[in-house]
């Protein structure tokens, strides 16, 4: 449980801060000038912080919405992402946030409305094409929802704007906010999944795959459009059987019409990020695997990637129509 909340003084009375106060009544609050003075400071130890992260409440002032980075997936003509939060409650061993930030503390930007305003502006500028706005690039979209109350705000906004899409990407089963309302046709709940055998080792603190499947199937029954994300694909002995079983289990009582899209992508890291992440786990078997570096990206290499891609495509094609399947490619 979060024990310490640092807050920029100007957001102390913001409605989101009040929501957080109710959700974390026992936490101690300490004022700061700006979130950067804490979040960006030098000599932080990500792994030790991850044992007991603190929450920073801040106001975002610019860059609310950005074009998605190459290889994020989904072939929508206009893709953008926004991050109302940095860092994640969970602690997946392969998480690239560990290589991106110096700090494992959570930053929650409380001014959700400013994000939505920016989305409106982009929507008006791009009225000729349908745009998708991804949440969950710098965090898990729903894991923190009981504290942040973000999903309700986002869904209210996108309900009013049916011509643009929202993707909430998650491993969370904190989907209460979604059950409390009618499904919204322009909102995709995308679950990140991997076989149970590796998820139980790598997806530390995240809900089990079985619980995620349960949540996603209940949401599908409730009418929500579901995204399936196999990203990153992890290579290990017996991976074909394990992925095949996982996909079969997902599809057991999920139908093509429930599925908005399926995407998959190989394990990959920008070189600098990889070096930083490995320094967090120098003695870990997962990062002992001999990866290859090519054009500034560290990955399994084209041989294994093609093998995995072909296999996934074949398996998915058994259940899902081809136009819904996307590959997150290396750039």
């Amino acid at each position: 449980m979060i024990e310490t909340i640092y807050f920029e003084e100007e957001v102390f009375d913001h409605p989101t801060s009040l929501h957080v106060r109710k959700a974390l009544p026992r936490a101690d609050w300490f004022p700061i000038r700006s979130y950067q003075e804490l979040f960006n400071k030098r000599h932080q130890n990500f792994r030790l912080q991850k044992k007991q992260p603190e929450l920073i409440l801040a106001k975002k002032n610019s860059n609310f919405v950005l074009p998605i980075p190459a290889g994020f997936g989904m072939d929508t003509s206009r893709n953008f992402y926004f991050s109302h939060m940095y860092n994640c409650l969970y602690d997946c061993k392969y998480c690239f946030l560990q290589g991106m930030y110096n700090s494992a503390n959570f930053v929650l930007f409380v001014n959700y409305d400013d994000f939505f305003h920016s989305i409106s502006v982009i929507k008006n500028e791009n009225h000729d094409a349908s745009a998708t706005f991804f949440s969950g690039y710098d965090c898990d979209s729903l894991a923190f929802d009981k504290i942040s109350g973000f999903a309700d705000h986002a869904l209210d906004f996108f309900y009013q704007h049916p011509d643009i899409n929202l993707e909430l990407r998650t491993k969370s089963v904190a989907v209460g906010a979604l059950f409390k309302r009618e499904a919204i046709s322009n909102c995709i709940i995308a679950f990140s999944l991997s076989p149970h055998e590796i998820s139980k080792v790598l997806d530390f603190k995240a809900p089990s795959v079985a619980r995620r499947l349960n949540a996603l199937k209940n949401l599908a029954r409730h009418g929500w459009k579901i995204g399936l994300r196999f990203d990153p694909l992890i290579y290990f002995k017996g991976w074909e059987d394990q992925y095949s079983t996982l996909i079969a289990n997902i599809m057991l009582d999920l139908f093509d019409e429930n599925i908005h899209s399926v995407s998959f992508g190989p394990l990959r890291f920008p070189k600098k990020m990889y070096k930083k992440i490995v320094s967090h786990y120098p003695n870990d078997q997962f990062y002992a695997f001999p990866l290859e570096e090519k054009n500034g990206t560290v990955s399994y290499g084209s041989h294994l990637e093609i093998e995995m891609r072909c296999f996934l495509e074949r398996e998915l094609a058994k259940y899902v129509s081809e136009e819904k399947i996307f590959q997150c490619v290396l750039h």
Partner: peptide, 15 residues
Amino acid sequence: MEKQLSSETDSWVIQ
């Protein structure tokens, strides 16, 4: 050491 690691990739176990 790299050679020994590479020789194990087919049977790589994650634990």
